[in-house]
């Protein structure tokens, strides 16, 4: 089984999409680090769903585009993409920045979202509990702060970066700053419209997340009382990498 890679040009922006599996369509919305590689958790999800893994405009091998100025633009792009792919409704799975994006999509077109799974999402802010400063950390600090299991950090740090990898890393970082520098990693208006979200919602958080504070998860639970908030121990900001089994089971439970 392997993912099919295609490039789609939409709104004059060429985006890279990988797709695999049968069943209800599910879109994985990646975080600030992009989605350069197909990860084991994606392979697992593709066994139960028609899994679609785009690289957002401005990330990875997708184009940068002058119309992309904020997360609202990104959400409308994805609504156009659903139309383009002729998908009336999908499951959304979003990690970090991608979780924020999932909510921006869902408040605009709740009928297009069958279920929403948020893994340590950005998007809201709790005063005096700021996210980690991802823009001030060195690459080494970033790797160490991403994972609870430091063996994973060591593994990431040991991978040599090609010139192309380095370019993509700088590009992802640039687009992340464009979208999330200020207000940092959130939209102060987002929470006002979360009541529009009626589909099943599950929120997953690593107890040792050093990027997004758990207080943000609690705030989201307050604004979406029907959401299920699950905290897993021994886990940093990326449960899908540190605990793919728990992550996939939780996604499947939410998108039943």
């Amino acid at each position: 089984m392997s993912f099919q890679e295609t490039f789609i040009t939409l709104n004059e922006c060429r985006v890279r999409i990988r797709r695999q599996g049968k069943g209800t369509p599910m879109i994985y919305l990646h975080g600030a680090d992009g989605a350069a590689m197909i990860q084991p958790f994606m392979e697992t999800l593709a066994q139960s769903y028609d899994l679609i893994v785009p690289e957002h405009p401005g990330f990875g091998q997708s184009d940068e585009t002058p119309w992309l100025e904020n997360m609202h633009d990104m959400a409308y792009f994805y609504l156009d993409l659903l139309d383009h792919l002729q998908l009336p409704a999908v499951h959304l799975v979003g990690s970090s920045l991608g979780g924020w994006l999932a909510m921006e999509i869902a408040i605009r077109a709740p009928h297009r979202v069958k279920s929403m799974f948020l893994s340590a999402p950005a998007g809201v802010r709790v005063a005096n509990d700021p996210p980690g400063d991802i823009f001030l950390w060195s690459p080494e600090q970033m790797a160490r702060n991403l994972f609870h299991n430091q063996a994973l950090a060591e593994k990431v740090l040991a991978i040599p970066l090609s010139e192309e990898d380095q370019n993509i890393r700088l590009k992802n970082r640039h687009t992340t700053a464009l979208l999330a520098w200020e207000p940092r990693l959130h939209d102060p208006c987002l929470h006002k419209w979360l009541h529009r979200v009626k589909m099943p919602v599950s929120i997953l958080w690593g107890a040792q997340d050093k990027i997004m504070p758990l207080a943000c998860g609690e705030k989201l639970k307050f604004h979406m009382p029907h959401a299920h908030l699950q905290v897993i121990d021994q886990c940093g900001h990326l449960p899908q990498i540190e605990h793919p089994g728990v992550f996939c089971a939780a996604v499947q439970h939410n998108a039943a």
Binding site: F135, L136, W137, S138, N167, L170, K171, R173, H174, T176, A177, L178, W181
Partner: peptide
Amino acid sequence: EMLLPPGYTSR
């Protein structure tokens, strides 16, 4: 990272 935040200079 402090001196050169993303976008401050061309890549």
